[in-house]
Structures are given as C-alpha cells and as structure tokens.
C-alpha cells in the first residue's frame, strides 16, 4: 500500500425491508441505521448513542430484534429487515401504539420507536408478561427522561387487550 487512501470502499447489497426488495450500493462503513434513514428515508428508526447502548435504533433483523447501529449495511445482503414503519403498517403493533397514546407513555418520544419494537418482541415471546418482565425488557431502551412507569402501564395494557382478542 502507498499511503492512506480516502476512496470509500463500497459493496452492493440486496435485502428485504418491510416486505420490499431493495438494491443499493453502500459504503462498507455505513451502518444499518444510517442506511435505513438516509438511503431509504425510513426515519422512524432513531439514532441516539450510535454505539449500542440506548436502543433507539432497534429493528427486527432476520426475525429477531437487534441494534441497527451495530450492524453494517454491508452485512445485510440477503437478509430481512423490519422497521417500526413496517410493524406499524402491518398492524402488528397497533395495540401497543394505541396503549402508548392512551397512557401518554412518552415524554420527548425519541425512544418510542425502539420501545415499540422491543415491546412487540416481548409480547411475541411472553404474551402475558409481569411488570418485572416488562421492566427487564425495556431496560434495553432506557434513555434519559425516566418516565418509564407509563410505558410499563401501556405495555401491560396492550398485553391484556391482545389476550382478550386471541
């Protein structure tokens, strides 16, 4: 090698995002959060800490929740990604969204998309969680406002509503 090169190495990826196939050329260092927001315009995925701590960028990656800031877009070739927009459009998180609204389960709302994706994942695996289990799950998405009590209430309410439905 002859000195540093500032050419951005790129790769081509093809993946499924919220049910649609997308093909893009991306910089190797672009993470999935930036790809979703800046390349696809899906700004529901928020970027808080950008190092895997805050959970605001949580998405469903090949069926399991993950921090999109800790996944390279380059890695996602051939994979399936669902964002809060996809979960919202499909109606999967409707009960949660309504419960968050009814309980005013947010202060600034920045963490809310990640909270919803995390809560949906919890209710998928544990349909009737205890308050402790809810707190355990959303500890992955703690931000700064400490207004978590209402969020726990909302997730509990959504789980009860879903239990009645099924």
């Amino acid at each position: 090698m002859s000195g540093p090169s500032f050419d951005e190495p790129e790769v081509t990826i093809e993946l499924t995002v919220n049910g649609a196939t997308v093909t893009r050329r991306v910089s190797t260092r672009r993470h999935l959060s930036d790809f979703l927001r800046d390349d696809l315009g899906l700004t529901g995925t928020h970027i808080g800490c950008e190092h895997g701590v805050c959970g605001a960028c949580t998405v469903r990656y090949d069926g399991e929740i993950a921090r999109s800031c800790l996944i390279l877009a380059a890695q996602t070739d051939g994979s399936t990604v669902e964002t809060v927009e996809g979960l919202s459009d499909s109606g999967e998180i409707e009960a949660l969204q309504q419960a968050f609204l009814a309980r005013n389960a947010l202060q600034c709302g920045f963490c809310t998309p990640g909270m919803l994706v995390t809560a949906a994942d919890l209710l998928r695996s544990v349909p009737k969680p205890s308050r402790d289990e809810v707190r355990d799950a959303i500890s992955a998405n703690y931000c700064r406002c400490t207004g978590y009590h209402a969020i726990v209430d909302a997730i509990m309410a959504a789980s009860e509503k879903l239990a009645v439905k099924s």
Binding site: G52, G55, T58, Y61, E64, I65, A66, R67, L70, I71, T118, D121, L122, A137, S139, A140
Partner: peptide, 9 residues
C-alpha cells in the same frame, strides 16, 4: 449479558 437485542447478535 446486556439485553435481548444484544444477546441475539
């Protein structure tokens, strides 16, 4: 170890 989303990866 951390949280569910981290343990998945």
């Amino acid at each position: 170890v951390a949280h569910h989303a981290i343990r998945n990866r």
